[in-house]
Every structure is written in C-alpha cells, then in structure tokens.
Nucleic acid binder design. Structure first.
Length: 495
RNA sequence: GCCCCCAUCGUCUAGAGGCCUAGGACGCCACCCUUUCAAGGUGGAGAUCAGGGGUUCGAAUCCCCUUGGGGGUACCA
C-alpha cells in the first residue's frame, strides 16, 4: 500500500473520448499497481459546452471499461464516494473563490477589468507583428482609485495571477527534467472569470491540492502548461505533485487524435462490437509495453505489469486494424455464456433494423457459437454472418447460384439432386455428421467437385458465397427451411 | 512567430555501449490446411535505427547540430 492518489478529470463537453479513456486507464493502472487511490472528478466549469448527457456517457463508459474509481461524484442513483468531495467543480466554486481571495490578499493576483474584445484585439495585434501573444499587464498596477472607476462603470473583474519571472523546472516521470522559462507563459494568467467560475489551470490546481493528488498523469498536451500549475501550487503554499505526461494518441496523419479525423467516441466502438477487454488491452499498449512479447493482457495482467518507466515518449497512431485483431483474439477467449450474452443485443439490433425477421433465442444463440466465434472481428459482424437464418423470404441471386466451373443447368440439376438426397435421408439424416458424406457421395456419383455442389447449396440457403460452415448452417436453418430454400433456388434457375 | 516535447519496418513496439547480419505483433504477399469465409500453421517482403558531426577499441543506444513531426501559446479543457 502507498498513499498515492491519482485522478481522471474529464470535462463533460463530449462523449467519452478514446484519449480520455486511455488517460483514465493509465491512472487506474498506476493506482492499482501501487495500491493507491483512483479518483474521478468532473471538470464542468465550461458551462456552455458541458451537459448532463455527456457526463452520463463518460461515467457509463469508464464503468463499462472496468475502470472503477474509488472516489467520485454521486451519479446514476449512486451516492458520492470519498471524503474529498464534492467531485464536480461547479459544486466547489467556494473553494476557488477562497483560494483566489488568498492570492489577492497576498498580492499574488489582482482584479483585471479588461474585456474580451480588448484582449482579443491586443492578441491579434501581437500575432500580426509576429510577436508572442501575452497579456500586457495593463491591470497589474491599477490604483484603488482606478479600480473603483471601473467598478463604477459596472465592470466586473476577472482575477489574474501574477506570473513571476524565472525558470520553472520539474522532473516528469516519463520525460525526465523539463525546464520552461516563465516568460514563455503568456503573461499574467486569468484564474477566475468575472462570474466566479475558475479557469482550467486554476481549478485543477486547487482541486488537486484539496484532493491530495500525488501524481498527475495526463496527456502531453498539458506539458507546456505545467509550469503555470506549479507556480500556482507554490503561490498557494501547496505541495507540488509528481507529473507524468503521456504521449498523445494520433490520427493517421500524426496530428492529435480528433473527432474530425478519427472515430473518437468510446460509445461508437462499443456500438460496433468491440469488447472492453480488447479496448483496454489495445489502449494500454498504445504508448506503453511490458518489455516482453506478451500482447494479450487482461486488465489485471496490465495492473500487475504496469511500469511508468516504460511509457513511450513519442505519440502513437491509432491503428484500427490492430484493435480489430485484438478484439478477435478476445472474442475467442470469452466463455460461451458470456459471448452469447454479448451477442444478443447485436442480433436484436438486426431485427430492429429490419435486416432480420426475428431474433434468435438464447438457446439458439448458444448453438451458434462454435460456428461464429472465430469469424467475428467485432460483435457487430454477427448479422452478416448468420442473418440469413432469421429471415423469412430469401431470394438468392440466380447468378450467384451458379458456381464458377458450372453452368445454370448443372447448378439446377445439382440443387435438385441435393434436395432429393436431403429429403430422402429424412429427419435422422439431417445432422452435421450425416449430411456431409451424403452430399459428398452425391457429388462423386455425378462427377461433380464437392466444393461446387456445396457452393451452390450455400448460396441457395443463405444467399451469400461466404458463410459459416455449410452443414452447421443447414442444421441451424432447419430441415424444412433448407428444403424449401433449395426448391426455391431450383425455381430461380429455371426462370 | 515564440516556448516545449519527440524521432527504430506502413502501424504499435523490443532494444537502456559489444548478445543487433536490429527481435516481436498488426497489416501485406505466398504456401499449407480447407466445402466458402474465417481461424490456425509455415515462410517472405518490409527499418542503411531521420541526416550529419562527435565521444568510444566499439553507438540504434551517450553528446551536439540539422531536418522532420507534434503539442502549447484563451475570461476552452
């Protein structure tokens, strides 16, 4: 056991993002590996973009991934957990206000009456002149009389933190020593808006301190901002946590992964039928490796092997193909009843979408498993694989019914003979074991290649050229329907 | 522009001075297996370790420069 406390602090301004999920995962792995505490905090101070729906999506999917937090807000009917709450920033406004007051009292901060338009204009002027945009400090030295005049005009001040000159250095767990000159920070920093809500940089620091966060593990996009946080921690008299900046997950063009260029919502991966084990496994190995050649690793395996020293420094391109491969691996490892249960909603969705006429029962799904398990890169592929079993009317394409080496007449004769053989074999002969030798024997007797006969039958019963194994498929379809589909295919070829 | 970070096969990575004629995985290509599709098996192509200087008996590994890429630079997070 250690007293390490780490957190994931998402903003509910969008559905759970793959990048947030990965950061959450690394925090979780670190916490569990060292026996520390994993905390969830919602940074909902961007009132305009935040929503309850997004918050629910984030919580639901972190939970879905298995990243259970030890402390976090009340949600979904469950009570708040942890002694450091509340865990939503909008409920902590008094803390920020009080912290800002302290900085004001110490003259480490001052009220700023500049209005956004003025600041924008100023910034654009500097950018146009190829100069570093930075706050002029115009309000840094206002006299009480000047402040009173602004107040009299009805201006409500934001609070700015004074950035003192000097070099800020820290030892990052993944990058080593990082030094940044405070002069590069853009001047005095707004920490509180006029309406009293904190800006990100301030909220994080006040909360991380108040919640006793010991290790801040986050994306590299925060690296340059870290000195601001360190300065704030110091000004407030708080201990500075240890930082670890993770490499970014990248679009194929190597820019920061974005909704615009990649599929970023975890829920969209779930909808396609990626399983949590694969997503977790894949995300963990994006930017980190065990140093061994193991690659199929459960969440528990990952916890046991996690080591911040092995975290990669360069960004990692998100490779969907590799994710799919891992997903297939995990699907193969699932227990029968587990896989069946996860498949059920996808089969129901096929019916809901009108692609099938009915949804198989749990018993039917269980029977399907051996023939589909190794053919599913994602659970959502189940419809394409077995949908033909659950449609009423199947009209096969006459052209597909004729195998490459055959002509239509042969196909018709083959299907008629096959139907007769199957019908003649009766109920007792309609098993996987009996069907194969019967139909193979038929092909031999007629001088056909078994594969051609099988292909014609396959298309007749399924409408497709790629299906699960034929005899299993026929049995799953049932004798009556197999016979009628064969008859129908014969008719289709006669026309 | 300025600041910071990064740099091994297309992609994810192993490699922490000699074990590297650079290993594995995904993807790709063959072949095997095979009733199709998968899965599986075997093999192959694929990286002058971004380039250039050093240091060293010896460098993918250490240092410097260059180049390239990324991130940051808000009263967004």
């Amino acid at each position: 056991m250690t007293t390490a406390r780490v957190r994931i602090a998402p903003s509910p301004t969008g559905p759970l993002h793959i990048g947030t999920a990965r950061t959450a995962l690394f925090n979780y792995l670190y916490a569990r590996h060292v026996g520390g505490t994993f905390i969830l905090r919602l940074e909902d101070t961007d009132v305009v973009r935040s929503s309850a729906e997004f918050e629910a999506d984030i919580l639901e999917h972190l939970h879905w991934l298995g990243l259970e937090w030890d402390e976090g807000p009340a949600a979904g009917g469950l009570p708040e957990r942890g002694a450091f709450g509340p865990y939503r920033q909008m409920a902590r406004r008094e803390l920020y206000r009080a912290a800002a007051e302290r900085l004001l009292a110490d003259d480490r901060a001052y009220p700023c009456y500049c209005i956004p338009d003025e600041l924008d204009a100023e910034r654009h002027r500097l950018e146009a002149a190829k100069l570093q945009p930075r706050y002029s400090g115009r309000c840094a030295t206002l006299t009480p009389a000047e402040r009173a005049r602004f107040e009299a005009q009805g201006r409500r001040p934001a609070i700015r933190f004074r950035i003192e000159p000097g070099v800020v250095a820290f030892d990052d767990m993944v990058r080593g020593r990082v030094e940044i000159d405070a002069a590069a920070l853009g001047g005095d920093l707004v920490i509180l808006r006029a309406d009293g809500t904190p800006l990100y940089h301030f909220g994080v620091v006040v909360d991380d301190a108040a919640m006793g966060i010991t290790h801040v593990i986050r994306g590299e996009d925060h690296l340059s901002n870290t000195p601001k946080h360190i300065l704030l921690f110091r000004a407030l008299g708080y201990p500075v946590p240890v930082f670890a900046h993770l490499p970014l997950i990248l679009n194929p063009d190597r820019t920061k992964m974005s909704k615009r260029k990649s599929q970023t919502a975890v829920k969209d991966y779930i909808a396609e039928g990626f399983v949590r084990e694969a997503l977790v496994n894949y995300l963990a190995l994006l930017g980190w490796s065990t140093g061994t050649e193991e690659e199929i690793l459960s969440l528990d395996d990952l916890v046991g092997r996690f080591d911040t020293g092995a975290i990669q420094r360069g960004g990692a391109v998100f490779d969907r193909q590799r994710l799919e491969w891992l997903n297939g691996q995990w699907i193969r490892l699932l227990a029968d009843d587990d896989l069946a249960a996860r498949l059920a909603p996808f089969l129901a969705a096929e019916t809901a979408a009108g692609r099938t006429d009915r949804t198989p029962s749990p018993a039917e799904i269980a029977a399907l498993l051996p023939m589909v398990r190794e053919r599913l890169p994602v659970l959502g592929a189940i419809g394409d694989l077995v949908g033909f079993l659950y449609v009423e009317d199947l009209v096969p394409d006459a052209a597909l019914l004729v195998p490459k080496r055959w002509d239509a007449a042969t196909a018709r004769a083959g299907l008629m003979a096959a139907r007769a053989a199957i019908e003649g074999a009766g109920e007792a002969g309609f098993t996987v074991l009996a069907l194969e030798p019967a139909l193979r024997g038929l092909a031999d007797a007629r001088g056909w290649k078994a594969g051609d006969l099988f292909m014609a039958i396959r298309v007749a019963i399924s409408g497709r050229t790629a299906t699960p194994p034929l005899f299993e498929s026929m049995v799953a379809l049932g004798r009556e329907r197999t016979l009628s589909r064969l008859a129908r295919a014969v008719d289709a070829l006669a026309a």
